[in-house]
Design a protein around this nucleic acid. Structure first.
Length: 993
RNA sequence: GCUGAAGUGGUGGAAUUGGUAGACACGUUGGACUUAAAAUCCAAUGGCCAGAAAUGGCCGUGCGGGUUCAAGUCCCGCCUUCAGUACCA
């Protein structure tokens, strides 16, 4: 019996995955005649749950693009790695006592196996793991570079700290225009040289790009760590949703604010989605205005405010300080002290979240103190109020009730005068905040001026008085860089007399010590405080036991670790030269690969990873480590794939079961009945649930089973494949199955529909283990093959769009691949058969149409439409009985980025050695498309249409003649003379009379 | 509130950027093959109307206007949804 040739995806895929691994097919060369192209995915955090079908979406898209670029003659770098430091492994370690290193390693192994199953063309020789000392050595090294640098605004770049020291010793700091802490005071070179070494270090710390400072940080008590601003969402922690409070702590920070303007400017140079650019722009939050200084009357102090409306300075009728403002306690008069203290205390108690939720209530308190207006010298009452945020600007505002709604509300609430400063505007009810040409009045030298004129003139006058100057303010804050955690990069820092010192770079990496437990210590130290061997011996240059600390040669090491974004900020450069022991990456590799040409990942990193990564890249560019100042040239956000969850509705009131004294008796209602009952809720008497009738949604489980299926096509072989079944069948709950699964509800009552069924409710939400809506790619690969999974994920819709996963449609893509296979297997019993005859015109047309469309689609990242294009092509070629090599060879190449395994197999059967991935992309030839590409916009009445084939090279006159000669023309024109004839590319002719 | 994106059949989504709206796929219906099922193949499938049929007509891309020979696409005004962000002075 002749061997049956069926599309056996499982063995084909295994075979080629093995081939690629053995032959290192996708290894990128650091030296090449070819142009380079760098395609990168955001590397995953290897979680214990493994990959679900949503994760590979972006990887598949980038893999298609990478494979396409290889066909197009590029030397493609397409690496993958793991962002393997982080919270979940640590939480798991706390619960189980297992070392995070172990779980991380296991999770990575599982991820790798899952990734391999899908057939990605990653260059695994270049794998990077952030938790590997070989890698984090360079994270530590970059930290040290930041520590050893300061930001010079005059040169607008980072410079070595040694250059700052020499400036200080020759000129002092008065000529220095640097990014530094606010409270730096002026000193001369003589003073500098007279400072002790310790004093010098203290001062330098205020200039370093990473610095240790006592700052207000976001402390999350539940997680036991501080969080950066981007790790807080709606006042609670992004991870876990725990409350966050403000707390003063000594922490490492990154002076990212020095780069605010350059981070903003750089956005113009990169090809990123507009929403993502917008959120970075908003996050940086540049606003132009002026800083104005108000002297406090009868007290030696001044209040600096930032305002975007210096033009309204004559409308100031009070000032408001944030309750946390340091001056509050100093300037408050004795008479007001009690009230002010009570108010400050009350606001401190409220969490950030409460304050944000409650924006309607106006509250505040008068301090009893007055400031002096810089021009009129009038006294201005100083208030405190929680609508002023300590963390923005200077934590103080000059209140102009006429021009700002919040000031207006505050003034009305506390009966503070509202000076009228806009001509012809009624401000009795609300403030007038428009920046337009409305002339000012009651404003002395600004009278009659419009916004634009007045702003400039006001700033000029303020500068003359020395009471203020034009200023650009940014919302962006310096990023807190310490985390009180175990599973992260240790800082290469030890402390001498409380001052941080770097260990020498040549002794890196400083590896994470072993600890007895992964929790903070009893006295509130981070977990590294539990390490017995965590001190630095400056003579031996190695880590030694804590007991040897003598504060002369042996010093304590930093106990904090770096945050999650440390490792991900520069990993892209490490891929270029991952085994370099001397440098982050060799200069030649950096010069050759430059930066990432295409980056794929989710938009959730907009203000985190993507901003920090740009910051570090710019910094390393300044310090001449990198030849580029942007990490990612083009970025595409892939949308999330959502899962479809099923719910049952449970009545929340627990009714006692009369017959059982222990078990509560629970009632479930089907969704349609629930709706009915819900509608009747207002009327009492809905059966037994009169009060407290509401529902708790419960996610339903999918049960994975293996089924043995007799397959007649496969010679009655018994196949076993995994099948996903549910406690749900077609939206109907299997009540017995459900009771079995959740035994706690075994005696629950189910109120069913009239026909005895129990309908579930459906909802689309994020895939998550706890929601039982996760679809595992392994199952799909086993049942349909990786090529089907790859094509189906692309077919689901545009790459940027969020979309629910629906396994139902997958058969369409799968049967397409079977049809493709058949195209090459038209022989007896489905044996391989292609002919060497010349292809016919129709087939050539189909082929070239497909080449053109697929190439366009890939270039536009519209992968979903090219799957359709392939389907059409294969349908057409089947109908044409096409089996010519001339067609089938290029077709295999075309499809290989999408379905690489089947393409390799066909390529081999076509008699080629070596991987299809090395072959050039087929060239499109227009001559094969018999269609006019010319368009003659003559006219069209919308109804007269007929179709005729027109050769490509026809002249305008010929086309017109042909159209006029067509039998239908006369009929359409009904005796009228045509004004114009339109020939659309294709074959539609429109005529108008 | 502000910023951004988007509204097309029963469903996911196409539409060469102003030129046959609904490609392709799912689903549904009917048919072929089969003892049967699976698999496979074929046909129909936006709505309404006329016709035995081939076919023909009208309506149709969230709503209301406008530009144009021609609008899903461009302009003006609304409505809705999603995403991000928010006492930012």
């Amino acid at each position: 019996m002749a061997p049956m040739s069926k599309y056996e995806f499982n063995s084909i895929e295994k075979k080629w995955q093995q081939y690629w691994a053995e032959h290192n097919t996708f290894a990128a060369q650091n030296e090449s005649e070819k142009p380079k192209y760098y395609v990168l995915d955001m590397f995953p955090y290897p979680s214990g749950a493994g990959l679900h079908v949503g994760h590979p979406l972006g990887y598949i898209a980038s893999d298609i693009y990478a494979r396409y670029k290889r066909h197009k003659g590029f030397n493609v770098l397409h690496p993958m790695g793991y962002d393997s430091f982080g919270l979940p492994a640590e939480q798991y370690a706390i619960q189980t006592g297992q070392h995070p290193r172990k779980t991380t390693k296991e999770n990575i192994a599982r991820y790798r196996q899952q990734l391999d199953t899908i057939g990605f063309s990653f260059d695994w020789n270049r794998e990077v793991r952030t938790s590997s000392p070989k890698y984090y050595r360079w994270t530590q090294w970059i930290f040290m570079q930041l520590f050893e640098s300061w930001y010079d605004y005059n040169a607008d770049k980072a410079r070595p700290i040694s250059e700052l020291i020499s400036i200080f010793s020759s000129e002092g700091n008065t000529s220095v225009n640097a990014a530094c802490d606010a409270e730096v005071s002026d000193f001369s070179s003589e003073e500098w040289n007279g400072f002790s070494e310790e004093e010098k270090q203290q001062i330098l710390l205020q200039y370093r790009l990473t610095y240790l400072a006592e700052t207000e940080v976001n402390w999350c008590p539940a997680l036991g760590t501080v969080l950066a601003n981007d790790e807080i969402v709606n006042g609670v922690s992004e991870r876990g949703g725990h409350p966050v409070v403000r707390k003063k702590m000594k922490q490492w920070s990154m002076r990212i604010t020095a780069y605010a303007q350059r981070l903003l400017d750089g956005l113009d140079k990169i090809d990123w989605p507009q929403p993502l650019k917008d959120s970075q722009t908003n996050w940086i939050g540049r606003s132009e205005g002026a800083s104005v200084t108000f002297n406090v009357k009868d007290y030696d102090a001044s209040i600096e405010v930032f305002t975007t409306r210096p033009d309204t300075i004559f409308g100031v009728s009070f000032m408001t300080l944030a309750p946390e403002h340091p001056l509050v306690s100093k300037i408050t008069t004795d008479a007001q002290k009690e009230k002010i203290e009570a108010y400050v205390e009350a606001t401190a108690k409220r969490s950030e979240r409460e304050r944000m939720a409650d924006v309607k209530t106006i509250s505040g308190e008068f301090t009893g103190a007055y400031a002096e207006h810089p021009f009129t010298k009038e006294p201005i009452p100083i208030w405190i109020g929680d609508y002023v945020l300590a963390s923005y600007g200077t934590g103080a505002v000059m209140a102009v009730p006429a021009g700002d709604q919040r000031d207006h509300d505050f003034a009305r609430h506390f009966d503070i005068p509202i000076p009228d400063i806009f001509e012809g505007v009624d401000i009795s009810e609300e403030a007038y905040a428009d920046k337009d040409s409305t002339p000012l009045m009651n404003s002395d030298f600004l009278n009659g001026l419009s916004y634009n004129e007045a702003v400039n003139k006001a700033i000029e006058a303020l500068e003359q008085q020395g009471a203020g100057k034009g200023k650009i303010n940014y919302r962006l804050r310096d990023a807190v860089f310490s985390r009180q955690r175990y599973w992260g990069e240790p800082f290469p820092v030890y402390y001498k007399n409380g001052l941080p010192q770097l260990i020498d770079a040549k002794h890196l990496p400083l590896t994470l010590p072993e600890v007895s437990a992964y929790l903070p210590t009893e006295d509130g130290q981070p977990p590294l405080g539990r390490a017995d061997k965590w001190a630095w011996d400056t003579e031996k240059n190695e880590v030694v036991e804590n007991s040897k600390i003598d504060d002369e040669k042996v010093f304590p090491l930093e106990l904090n670790t770096m945050p999650g974004w440390a490792g991900s900020s520069c990993y892209l450069f490490r891929y270029m030269d991952p085994n370099n022991e001397e440098q982050l990456a060799g200069e030649e590799a950096l010069r050759y690969w430059q930066n990432v040409d295409l980056y794929l990942g989710g938009s959730e990193h907009a203000t985190g990873h993507l901003l920090y990564s740009r910051f570090w890249t710019k910094f390393l560019y300044d310090r001449k480590v990198l030849p580029v100042d942007e990490p990612f040239k083009k970025l595409i956000n892939q949308g999330m794939i959502l899962g479809e969850s099923a719910f049952v509705q449970k009545v929340s009131a627990v009714v006692r079961d009369e017959n059982s004294s222990t078990e509560p008796f629970e009632v479930f209602v089907s969704s349609s009945l629930a709706e009915k009952a819900n509608n009747k809720f207002s009327k009492p008497g809905v059966q037994e649930f009169e009060d407290a009738f509401s529902y708790i949604q419960m996610n339903l489980k999918r049960i994975k089973e293996r089924k043995n299926v007799r397959d007649i096509n496969m010679n009655n072989q018994v196949h076993s494949y995994s099948d996903i079944s549910y406690v749900i069948n077609n939206n109907e709950l299997d009540i017995e199955g459900f009771k079995k699964w959740r035994s706690e509800f075994s005696n629950a009552e189910f109120i069913t529909e009239k026909d005895g069924t129990f309908k579930v409710t459906r909802e689309v939400e994020k895939m998550s283990k706890s929601k039982y809506n996760v679809v595992n790619p392994d199952d799909i690969c086993e049942q349909y093959g990786a090529d089907t999974l790859r094509m189906y994920e692309m077919f689901l819709g545009p790459i940027e769009q969020a979309k629910p996963w629906n396994t139902a449609g997958i058969t369409g893509v799968h049967s397409f691949l079977k049809k493709l296979w058949k195209l090459y297997h038209g022989g007896e019993n489905g044996s391989f058969q292609v002919s060497d005859d010349a292809a016919d015109k129709e087939s050539l047309k189909t082929l070239h149409k497909t080449i053109k469309k697929v190439e366009e689609d890939i270039e536009n990242f519209s992968f979903n439409t090219s799957v359709s294009t392939f389907m059409i092509a294969v349908n057409e070629l089947s109908a044409q009985n096409c089996n010519q090599r001339e067609i089938l060879e290029p077709l295999a190449i075309l499809i290989s980025p999408y379905a690489p395994h089947i393409a390799e197999e066909l390529w081999e059967k076509l008699g080629h050695n070596g991987s299809i991935s090395k072959v050039a992309f087929p060239k499109f030839e227009e001559k094969h498309l018999v269609e006019s590409s010319k368009e003659y916009p003559i006219s069209f009445n919308g109804k007269m249409r007929f179709t005729m084939e027109l050769p490509l090279d026809m002249s305008k006159d010929d086309i017109e003649a042909a159209v006029m000669a067509h039998e239908k023309t006369e009929q359409y024109l009904e005796g009228r003379t045509p004004k114009r004839v339109i020939v659309v590319p294709g074959k539609i002719v429109n005529i108008v009379g």
